[in-house]
Amino acid sequence: MTDNQPIAVKAEGLHKRFVTTEEEVHAVNDVSFEICAGDFVALHGPSGCGKSTLLLMTGALLSPDEGVIEIAGKNPYELKAEGRAAFRAEHVGFVFQQFHLIPYLNVLDNVLIGDLANRSSGGESNGDRARELLEKFNIGHRLHHVPSKLSIGEQQRVALARALLHSPELVLADEPTGNLDPENSEIILQHLADFADDGGAVIMVTHDDRAKAAAKSAMHLDGGEMISSDQQGEKKEGQGE
């Protein structure tokens, strides 16, 4: 199904080491993968195995010590910091476990905050896009409420809308359902799946079996190394049918 789709992210021989005062942590050790448009990949493994580190590297936020990453055919680490920021604004959306909504902005402004990064796009059309997304996520009636007035599930949906505002090729989600009840988890997972179905690529760090099941494929990380990868989707598709 995804074989003939364009490659969204390609990683080759990624290494990341953190040197602390006492020891060196090899957080990511020679990891390679390829994710195509339409893929929805669950990234799992024990705590401290390097999932978040890999996700940050994939999101053009943390440069690898070795190896190459290409997003939409471009290596963001060839860009300078500001260029990389603009690159992220254009190609990558982030969703966090703690949502990280801006407490003093209302729902609509929280979604539109991406406009600060991407000011080339006209404000009006983004306003429409934001409303459309929030409508779709069933929080269209809460546009002018601040995050603290929303339920946990609603907050994560706002965060998802924020990630999708500029229609990125890639969405990176670090435990997006970690704070949610099953019902709200289901909604978020469904929206991520919808995004992938519409041609986006999703990498989702998760411990949650239900979330793993919602993804089309999985990558298993342990001790910084890729233990197994079925991101081509055969397993899921096989299981699904």
Binding site: E82, A85, E90, H100
Partner: peptide
């Protein structure tokens, strides 16, 4: 700090 991190992650420039 977190707000700054999120803003930077979604691509807001350090100048802004």
């Amino acid at each position: 700090v977190t707000e700054i991190g999120v803003l930077r992650a979604i691509g807001v420039s350090s100048k802004i």
